[in-house]
Design a protein around this nucleic acid. Structure first.
Length: 361
DNA sequence: ATCATTTGACCGAG
DNA sequence: CTCGGTCAAATGAT
């Protein structure tokens, strides 16, 4: 590990230095009206450098998290401290399989069964509070004190559940170890217009804050695709794969401006994702936010996804990790060893955790 | 009046 | 029996 870190440190430094140099170049370049291509190139390279640097950090962090008693990741790991009674995730993993048949109608129990989930960590070092709007409208329908947790868990469901039959839900749990961390679990895919139309017309920020919908920006691919496309255009990146119909990968638009970072962890449950549209996914997000917990986080209207899924942590079981990595690596190329990855969002596989440490700020 | 949140109760799983 | 997830009445906000 140590040696790895040394290696990583060097790489990290190199990447950061390179990024800085490129940024300077870009700065110079910006003075010249022409050479647009050059700017794009520089921009892309800068992003790439940061992506790599972040990736290194993430990988490192995740590695330690897996072993440490880290709050966030806990959810996926049964033995993790956070969820004393069995993490929601682990539960879901099982559920994913059995729930398959279990779509029963009991009213007060879980109705949605995810096939896969994501863990995302978002950290907001800057002042903004709370998780941001994730583009969906959520309605809080419950709150529960969880055994072993200092803070209650909040339950949200899609506002359009009744009107459009959208069964997407999410749970928000503040970490007791670090109040600035929020574990968010998304379940079910949005089948509402929001989900289908992607970027939804955000309400005014004010309103969003009020909704408590502390939406973290992890989105289902659907919602994010559009953003991604925009972003891609700006960066001149290809996103071919994102066009796949049902990729429901969460997506995040971290508010860079607010200095928030998020880490997504997806756990792909070995089931076919193709069908069962909305019963399918579950994401878990860990939010790190400074002050306000469950609510608010101004959405950054503009995507600030610095990360094209480049960085991600997987506090998962080995198998999960392997699975994820295998899929992800295709996009970024091996996470650590060879950082040849290009900023190709496309390649970011569906189960891709987009990380977002506000890098442009 | 409408819609969202709060909160205690209910229910099923373990 | 305990605990997590959901319901739904009460309450609040707009």
């Amino acid at each position: 590990m140590e040696s790895e870190w040394s290696w990583e440190q060097n790489t990290l430094i190199n990447e950061l230095v390179q990024g800085m140099e490129l940024a300077r170049k870009l700065k110079e370049d910006l003075r010249m009206p022409y050479s647009v291509d050059s700017k794009d190139m520089l921009l892309q390279r800068i992003l790439s450098s940061y992506e790599k640097a972040l990736l290194i950090l993430r990988c490192n962090a995740s590695t330690s998290e897996l072993q440490a008693t880290s709050q966030a990741t806990a959810t996926l790991l049964p033995e993790s401290p956070i969820s004393v009674h069995g993490s929601p995730l682990s539960e879901d993993l099982d559920g994913a399989v059995k729930d398959h048949q279990e779509i029963k109608h009991d009213s007060k129990k879980r109705k949605i069964t995810p096939k896969w989930m994501d863990h995302v960590r978002v950290s907001c070092e800057s002042g903004l509070e709370g998780p941001q709007e994730d583009g969906y409208n959520w309605r809080k329908y419950g709150q529960k004190d969880i055994l072993g947790a200092k803070y209650p868990r909040s339950y949200y469901r899609c506002t359009f559940r009744n009107t459009q039959g959208c069964w997407a839900t999410k749970q928000v749990q503040r970490s007791d170890e670090d109040p600035t961390i929020f574990d968010i679990t998304y379940r079910g895919k949005h089948t509402c217009s929001q989900g289908n139309n992607a970027v939804l017309p955000p309400k005014s920020p004010d309103k969003q804050e009020k909704t408590h919908s502390h939406n973290i920006d992890i989105h289902h691919a659907q919602a994010s695709q559009e953003n991604l496309t925009k972003f891609r255009n700006i960066l001149s990146v290809n996103t071919d794969k994102l066009d796949n119909g049902d990729m429901a990968y969460p997506f995040t638009f971290p508010s860079t401006s607010s200095g928030c970072t998020k880490q997504y962890n997806h756990s792909l449950i070995p089931l076919t994702l193709e069908n069962e549209y909305f019963l399918s996914d579950q994401y878990q997000t860990h939010l790190l936010s400074p002050t306000t917990p469950e609510s608010n986080y101004l959405p950054s209207p503009t995507f600030q996804m610095n990360e094209f899924g480049a960085i991600y942590n997987k506090p998962y079981s080995d198998s999960d990790i392997n699975e994820i990595i295998s899929t992800n690596t295709s996009a970024t190329n091996s996470p650590i060893p060879d950082f040849n990855f290009s900023l190709d969002p496309v390649e970011i596989d569906p189960n891709f955790p987009f990380n977002t440490p506000g890098f442009f700020s």
